[in-house]
Amino acid sequence: MTTLKTKVLPAEGHLAATSSGARARHTPLMPSAGMRRVWLTLLGWGIALIIFFPILWMVLTGFKTEAAAIADPSLIFTPTLESYVAVQARADYFKFAMNSVVVAFGSTLLALLIAIPAAYAMAFLPTRRTKATLLWMLSTKMLPPVGVLVPIYLIFRDLGLLDTRSGLIIVYTLMNLPIVVWMLYTFFKDLPRDILEAGRMDGASTFQEVVYLLLPLTLPGIASTGLLSVILSWNEAFWSLNLTSSNAAPLTAYIASFSSPEGLFWAKLSAASTMAIAPILIFGWLTQKQMVRGLTFGAVK
């Protein structure tokens, strides 16, 4: 987030500088281009800091002792790994992390496999009911998950899916499918039909059309859809807390396990949370360019 802001702001500042510079000749009361730029930069950094502050505070707290963590908030303290050691001694972080990775990527892959053909059909072979189907799909996201907790729990129990990775993968896939189909649909719709038709004239079967033309041409969109799905799955807590206990529990369950049984231990909780969000934060950072490119794919083509 922050790196993105710092990258964008100077460019905006530059634009503002040239336009206000031109205006300044007519209205001497306008602040100079340089001042404007300074203010904009400060504003940008300020907003970024406010957004980022809770995460920063959590990370810092993780490096404090329990005593320091509940004492007056202070930026000056002696960092210690005490909490991390304590956290790792109680629960194996890597086991949870592995579950998160498998479940997040597994469900994303499965969702894409189902959603790509669905979105293809909706974008290129729409019927009169396509729009309504899309809306209906999205409307399923409006239902509070807790509303279907009991039936899903019972189904999972009977099918032996409780506390299994495959069970979570199924739930996450279903959970993200509407969004994934929607996003892919909008990306696919941006692709000129002519290109696929040219492919058909060239003798491509539907499968070849998808593999040789559609997928390579909408890859930025598919990638950003996949990234979003990974992030949503990674952060999902409701189903993971209710459907897993130990074997398949992902990092969200790991954090939760520190908040309840022992009361509030700010430092340990912060350390555990930091470890839980670190992978996805780094992942998001590394792929942020791809994400932005994907999300603005249609707009700037």
Partner: peptide, 10 residues
Amino acid sequence: MVFQSYALYP
């Protein structure tokens, strides 16, 4: 067929 938009594979 030659399309109005050319429809080349970009």
